[in-house]
Design a binder for these strands. Structure first.
Lengths: 157, 157
DNA sequence: ACCTGAACACCGTTCAAGT
DNA sequence: ACCTGAACACCGTTCAAGT
C-alpha cells in the first residue's frame, strides 16, 4: 500500500477512497495482469491459438513473478478472466472436443499451464537452464495437445 | 513468528536461536510437509505407486492450504523432497520410460499434480463441488498415465 | 546455552479532521 | 469529493542484558 501510494505521490490512507483494502487492490492488479494476454488472432488454427495463449500466459508470469501466483487463488470469475477462458472454450470446440467435456478439459489444461508458469515464476526451476525450461514447456504443450486430440477422437468413435 | 513462539510458550525473539529468520522457519515447515507423504509401499505396481503418491500430495495440500503453495517456490533440493522425487523416478523407470527421458517426465508430471493440488488448496476451485474436483483429479491422473505409457512405448519402437 | 526487554523499522487500517 | 495526521494493532528482527 505504501509503495503504490508513493508512486502516486500520495499517502497510503488516500488509497482507501478507491479500494476497500489490500486484497481488493490485488484483485485489481490480477485483473490488469489478465489484460496482458488478449484473445489470440481469430485466423489461426485452434492448436496455434492455444499455443500463443499458453506462451503469453507463461511470459506474463515471467514478467510479474510476485503477483502471478495469485492466479492460482481465484476462480476465473471476473470479465477479463472469462474472456481468456472463453477463448480456450472456442479452441477446444473447434478441436472437436464434445460440448459436455469442454469445461473439464479446459480446467485440466489451464491448471497444467498455470501450474508450470507459476512454478517458473516462483523459482522452482531456478536450477535449470532457460533452454531446459523452454523444452519442458514445449513438451507440456505437446502432451496437452495429444490429450485434446484424444478427447476429440472419442466423439468420432 | 509470534504464533509459533506462543505455542512454545516463549517470546518471538527466542526463535532466532534455532532458525535464521522466518524464511528459514518456513523451509523447515515445508520439509515437515514432505514427511507426510512417505514413499509408497514397494509391492504396488508403478502406476498404483504413482497414484497413491499423487493422492497423498493432494491430501496434504488440503490439510495445509496456507503452507502448501510454498512447494511451487522451491526446487526439490532437500533430502526429504529428493526422497519423494526418487520414488517417482523409480516408478517411471519401472514403467519403461527411457532413462534419458525420466527427469523431464518427472518434472512435467510433478508440476501438473502440484499445480492441481495448489489450485485446490488456494481455492481456485471453490465454486466447484467436491465430486467435480475429485473427477477432475482422476481425469488428470489418467491423462498423465497415458502420457507415461506413450513415453514408454517409444523405447520399444 | 538459552531466553528476554527494549527498541527499531515496518506493515495495513480507522477515523476525525482538513481542503 | 478527496486527502491527511494521528493513532492503533500488528509484523520481523537486532542486540545488549539477563539466567
Amino acid at each position: 500500500m505504501a509503495m503504490v501510494a508513493g508512486r502516486l505521490g500520495v499517502t497510503p490512507m488516500a488509497l482507501y477512497r478507491h479500494v476497500a483494502n489490500k486484497a481488493d487492490l490485488l484483485d485489481g492488479v490480477v485483473e490488469l495482469l489478465l489484460t496482458e494476454f488478449p484473445s489470440p488472432p481469430e485466423g489461426l488454427s485452434w492448436s496455434d491459438r492455444l499455443k500463443v495463449l499458453a506462451d503469453n500466459i507463461r511470459a506474463s508470469g515471467r514478467r510479474h513473478p510476485s503477483v502471478f501466483p495469485l492466479l492460482l487463488r481465484r476462480p476465473a470469475t471476473t470479465p477479463e478472466a472469462r474472456k481468456t477462458r472463453n477463448a480456450v472454450y472456442r479452441a477446444l470446440s473447434d478441436a472437436g472436443v464434445p460440448q459436455d467435456r469442454i469445461a473439464q478439459v479446459e480446467r485440466l489444461v489451464s491448471t497444467a499451464v498455470l501450474g508450470f508458469a507459476v512454478s517458473e515464476a516462483g523459482g522452482r526451476f531456478r536450477h535449470h537452464s532457460r533452454g531446459q525450461i523452454d523444452a519442458d514447456f514445449t513438451a507440456l504443450q505437446t502432451l496437452l495437445r495429444r490429450f485434446i486430440d484424444a478427447e476429440a477422437e472419442e466423439r468420432v468413435t
